[in-house]
């Protein structure tokens, strides 16, 4: 049990410290790296409580894909400059109220969720038959997800699809004058349509590209 406690506190301290570093570090790329560290330690915590599937999916989705895109954006755009402008001594007071409102909202939400769960555990109808130990974590998740919550699952999928199509439509730009290659056209080109033999009359030449 002692080893368990040691690992738990190590991962949680890393998670908390890196979460603080995300917001305080000057360099935005460092912030993203701390965010990744945070994700990794949280997925370790997931694995420690036996939710191995969630922990691995967290690693694959958040660290393997989402954070890579974050890094891309932060590295390619000059976010650091903009951030420093925003938080320059003169302007920073404008952003403090908004930040305060959002952070209080999140704080209140967390209090409600944790408080409700702590003092009235039967508030949410938890199906206890699913948390039996004989079935592995992945199996029990799949059994719930594709039977009881199939509609929620599919609706969330549809929302993601709509969001994706929306992002593509918003950023898609039809550019004119771009030459595209068509593989089929290139491969299926015959000699007859590519080359033409002409009689060239003296002093007249040939007209090309008419």
């Amino acid at each position: 049990m002692i080893a368990h406690a040691i690992f738990f506190y190590t991962f949680s301290i890393i998670a908390v410290v890196s979460a603080i570093m995300v917001t305080t570090s000057k360099n935005t790329v460092h912030s993203v790296f701390f965010l990744i560290l945070d994700f990794i330690s949280i997925s370790c915590l997931f694995i420690m409580i036996g939710a191995e599937f969630l922990g691995m999916i967290m690693l694959i989705v958040y660290v393997g894909a989402v954070a890579v895109l974050f890094l891309f954006v932060v590295m390619m755009l000059n976010v650091a400059q903009q951030k420093n402008q925003w938080f320059a001594a003169k302007d920073s007071s404008k952003h403090i109220p908004i930040g305060l409102v959002i952070s209080t909202l999140i704080f209140v939400e967390i209090i409600i969720v944790i408080g409700g769960w702590k003092y009235k555990p039967d508030l949410f109808d938890v199906n206890n038959s699913l948390s039996q130990t004989s079935v592995s974590n992945t199996h029990s998740l799949g059994q719930v997800l594709y039977t009881e919550y199939i509609h929620v699952f599919q609706i969330s999928g549809m929302i993601l699809l709509v969001a994706m199509i929306g992002a593509i439509v918003l950023t898609f730009r039809q550019r004119s004058g771009v030459k595209r290659q068509s593989y089929i056209k290139q491969i299926s080109r015959e000699r007859a349509e590519g080359v033409e033999v002409l009689e060239v009359q003296s002093n007249k030449g040939v007209k090309i590209d008419d």
Binding site: F33, I36, M56, I60, V63, G64, A65, M75, T138
Partner: peptide, 25 residues
């Protein structure tokens, strides 16, 4: 011998990109 071995393999191989991004940046 973990239950989600294949996911672990997949997760670790998808983390491999960070070494390259970090080095390049």
């Amino acid at each position: 011998d973990i239950n989600v071995g294949i996911l672990y393999l997949f997760a670790v191989s998808s983390l491999g990109v960070y070494g390259i991004i970090m080095g390049g940046w």
